[in-house]
Simulated assay, not measured.
Amino acid sequence: MSFEGGILVDRNALARARSELGTGFVRILGYFREDGTKSVVAIEEAMRKDNAAALVIPAHTLKGEARQFGANPLAALAEKIEDHARTCVEHHDSPQDAIEDVVALRPLFLQTLAVLERDANPLAVRRPGGFGRKAG
């Protein structure tokens, strides 16, 4: 599962988060990196243990944090895993049907994180035609 940078992150939602978080943006992004990594590990471990209940909270957490930054494909995948896990818990089923989604989660998280961190870099060029350059 591969996405273009513009599709991975909703630029308007990211700009809104940056504006709302102000100087705390980079710190909160760091929390997302740490918490997101923990959530992905917990989801993978829960899947290995065939434990639907253990999938719910980390998938829910990742979904909410991804949405905060406009990372909609990541949020949607985490929500799909969460919803599947909740259904499995209700029906006392194995979550194994979500294996493809769980396998796709880590690469999508890493791709998304790379886009967010690149955008958060104060040295990154954000717009073509910056200071002293003619807009193309």
Rank of each mutant, 00 (worst) to 15 (best):
D97L: 15
D97H: 11
D97Y: 04
D97T: 14
D97F: 13
D97G: 13
D97S: 15
A98H: 03
A98E: 01
A98T: 09
A98L: 04
A98Q: 01
I99A: 15
I99G: 02
I99P: 00
I99W: 08
I99Y: 08
I99N: 08
E100H: 10
E100L: 13
D101W: 12
D101R: 09
D101I: 07
D101E: 15
D101G: 13
V102N: 01
V102M: 09
V102K: 01
V102T: 01
V102E: 00
V103R: 14
V103W: 04
V103Q: 12
V103F: 07
V103C: 06
V103H: 12
V103N: 09
A104S: 10
A104P: 01
A104I: 06
A104V: 12
A104Q: 09
L105F: 14
L105M: 08
L105A: 04
R106Y: 11
R106M: 03
R106L: 07
R106I: 08
R106N: 08
P107D: 11
P107Y: 07
P107F: 12
P107T: 13
P107L: 13
L108K: 04
L108M: 15
L108V: 11
L108E: 00
F109A: 04
F109Y: 15
F109G: 05
F109I: 10
F109L: 11
F109Q: 02
L110A: 09
L110R: 07
L110P: 00
L110I: 07
Q111K: 10
Q111L: 04
Q111C: 02
Q111W: 00
T112S: 02
L113H: 00
L113N: 00
L113D: 00
L113C: 00
A114T: 15
A114G: 05
A114Y: 02
A114N: 09
A114V: 05
V115N: 03
V115M: 10
V115P: 00
L116W: 02
L116N: 05
L116M: 05
L116K: 02
L116C: 06
L116I: 11
L116Q: 01
E117H: 08
E117R: 12
R118Y: 11
R118E: 13
R118Q: 13
D119N: 04
D119P: 00
D119H: 05
D119T: 06
A120S: 08
A120T: 03
A120P: 03
A120R: 09
A120K: 03
N121Q: 01
N121Y: 02
N121S: 06
N121H: 04
P122K: 11
L123F: 10
L123Y: 07
A124S: 15
A124G: 04
A124N: 05
A124W: 05
V125T: 13
V125N: 02
R126D: 09
R126N: 02
R126V: 12
R127I: 14
R127T: 14
R127H: 14
P128T: 12
P128H: 12
P128M: 15
G129H: 07
G129L: 06
G130D: 14
G130I: 04
G130L: 12
G130W: 14
F131N: 02
F131I: 14
F131E: 11
F131A: 15
F131W: 05
F131G: 03
F131V: 06
G132I: 03
G132Q: 01
G132A: 09
G132C: 03
G132V: 04
G132D: 03
R133N: 10
R133S: 05
K134N: 03
K134T: 14
A135Q: 05
A135S: 03
A135Y: 02
A135N: 00
G136N: 08
G136H: 07
G136I: 14
G136C: 07
